[in-house]
């Protein structure tokens, strides 16, 4: 049986649909037994749905670097 820490990491992986089949099996087994991780998994899913709902936008790192340089040259 995997540890809670491992389970939690796999759980975060599944939020991006990148956990392997074996990992998913291990996770569901762990969640079946462990209440803490079951709750964590639920919250993690909720976080994913919140992020989706918020329709977040960000600037890329390159754009930020450019902005920083522009600001620097103005100071």
């Amino acid at each position: 049986m995997i540890s809670c820490e491992e389970a939690a990491t796999i759980c975060s992986k599944t939020q991006y649909k990148e956990a392997s089949f074996i990992e998913k099996m291990r996770l569901s087994f762990h969640i079946f037994i462990c209440k803490t991780c079951s709750k964590f998994s639920k919250n993690n899913k909720h976080l994913s749905s919140l992020c989706e709902k918020a329709k977040l936008h960000t600037l890329t790192e390159a754009e930020k670097v450019e902005m920083k340089e522009n600001i620097k040259s103005e100071i």
């Binding site: 977040l56 936008h57 960000t58 600037l59 754009e63 930020k64 902005m67 920083k68 600001i71 620097k72 100071i75």
Partner: peptide
Amino acid sequence: PEKWVDLYADYLFNYAVARISDADLAKDLV
């Protein structure tokens, strides 16, 4: 000001995109 980009750029960008819905323009406004 040297911390503005790290702290606020994304926040301001989201605000602008929500109102202008043109990412390039929103970036310029930020």
